[in-house]
Design a protein around this nucleic acid. Sequence first.
DNA 1: TTCGCTTTTATAACGGTGTTAACTTTTATA
DNA 2: TATAAAAGTTAACACCGTTATAAAAGCGAA
Lengths: 200, 200
Amino acid sequence: MGLVERRQRQKEEVRNSILTAAWEQVLSEGWTSLSIRKIADAIEYSVPVIYSHFASKDAILLEFTRQGFQRLIGQIKESALCEKEPAERLEGIAQTYWQFAFDNREYYQLMFGLGIPTCETANHIVEMRQFSEVITTTINQLIAGGPNADANVYLKFRTYWSILHGLVSIQMIDSTAATNKQSTAVLHDAVSGFVKSLIH
Amino acid sequence: MGLVERRQRQKEEVRNSILTAAWEQVLSEGWTSLSIRKIADAIEYSVPVIYSHFASKDAILLEFTRQGFQRLIGQIKESALCEKEPAERLEGIAQTYWQFAFDNREYYQLMFGLGIPTCETANHIVEMRQFSEVITTTINQLIAGGPNADANVYLKFRTYWSILHGLVSIQMIDSTAATNKQSTAVLHDAVSGFVKSLIH
DNA sequence: TTCGCTTTTATAACGGTGTTAACTTTTATA
DNA sequence: TATAAAAGTTAACACCGTTATAAAAGCGAA
């Protein structure tokens, strides 16, 4: 008798309905006004049911953070496969990162904006490490054999990521200021500058 | 009779006590757990008194944002005076910006972290425009007569600012990762790369 | 089928938040 | 001294996250 299995499946369904209801609220009202009570209302269950699936509101946000990183790393790996040359790969990753941020503003804001993932929470997200790995590997390929072969790769990764994050968040702050074309030009400018500094 | 003046002075004192009480709370517990009620408790007044000085909690946060920009622009102008050469000036401003962010983590997080100042709120802060002006002017001095004299200065400003903000916020996310010396090295690296791209 | 046990779900409360309406006290003026 | 204005307080409203407690439902054994 697949009784316990059916129950498991039903539980899973409720869990998913919680997440989709939460996501709809985030899309229509933003992260700040997301509330457990409104989720309960939307899925037509009482509040404590939510707490039998998630330990706290933060746990729900963490789940979305995880999802966000999963998406991001998926798209980045995909774009990394397209380019053979490390230099072009770094350019492609940058474009993908940028695209992700503005295709998924809510995700990006949760992942890096408010909340500010501390070292503890961020390190618990496996996908974050993958993100770091893909880029670090590419940088390594780029500088191997060059004049900067002895550079601290982790520091270089941080610089690269900083450039991306900085450009994205400044663009998000005043998104009316520059056109999309201008902004991607800035992105290209900054990244190519970084790449040049690595191989010269 | 300096009666109305005395009252004005007393009102001002209460206003200041609100801000200092709020600031103490922020220092000890962070922005998220700052509350009107706790402020009222600290200054030994009832809650509505606070609302006779500030229209809302956001108004209090806005006041601190203003203060933050005031400090930042003050320190930046000071450091800009030290250096005559535009290239070194940009280096100095970057160091000052970095220093400000980590000397005043709470300010920086309020100004750029949570909340994410939208274009509307940010533009109402006069000091923000000054910030933009000082840097834009310096960039202009740097590229005038060079091979990039026709570059879009505003875009270049955005790139510069993005580099700074990116480095600072990534450093804040995992502040245990790199030593201060390494981080300022990264800062120098990134900024000098930017400067080179402007004059070559 | 009915009893009892376990799982699931709901009600209601606790302590907290920002905000404001209504009331009281103090203060200064005519 | 009466009166109008200012200052301040109490208490409420409508929320929030979280949880203790009670009710309902589902299921196995008698």
